[in-house]
């Protein structure tokens, strides 16, 4: 170890991997519906894509967790993105190709991808 920068690099690299164990409630939460209906509709590849994107972008403070069926099985795979202090946004009929946009526009830049949300789907 020759410099502070090296130490900081290791810290940053590892931090995102352990961030969920840190105290504080300011994390962005991605909650994927993973009941039988969600899994059957393809929620698992969606979730894995989220993990991949979060890691690629080195995002800290984002946790991905799963939940059960919320009763709208026809719209699965569904997921919520919950930013601290904001109302949760529910995305429906998500496929892995949609994930990079959700991460880039919503999680990174704070602008929900309107056309993927439940509001857009219900308006059809």
């Amino acid at each position: 170890m020759k410099s502070l920068a090296e130490l900081e690099a290791i810290r940053q690299r590892t931090l995102e991997k352990v961030a969920m164990r840190k105290e504080g409630d300011d994390a962005v939460r991605v909650v994927v519906g993973m009941a039988t209906c969600g899994i059957a509709a393809g929620a698992r590849p969606v979730m894995l894509k989220f993990l991949e994107e979060i890691q690629k972008r080195n995002l800290q403070n984002v946790t991905v967790s799963q939940t059960g069926c919320i009763g709208m099985c026809r719209l699965e795979p569904m997921l919520d993105v919950i930013m601290p202090g904001k109302e949760k946004v529910t995305y429906v009929r998500v496929n892995p190709d949609m994930v990079p946009r959700i991460v880039a526009e919503h999680i990174v830049n704070g602008r929900p991808v309107q056309e993927y949300t439940i509001g857009a789907a219900e308006g059809e």
């Binding site: 502070l4 130490l7 810290r11 590892t14 931090l15 352990v18 164990r21």
Partner: peptide
């Protein structure tokens, strides 16, 4: 109960060795 004690990276992620760095520099 928070970190993996056999993984130095996790200790560093929780600000480990930062104090040593501060002291030495």
């Amino acid at each position: 109960g928070v970190i993996d004690p056999e993984n130095i990276d996790e200790y560093i992620a929780f600000d480990g060795y930062k104090a040593l760095a501060k002291v030495l520099t």
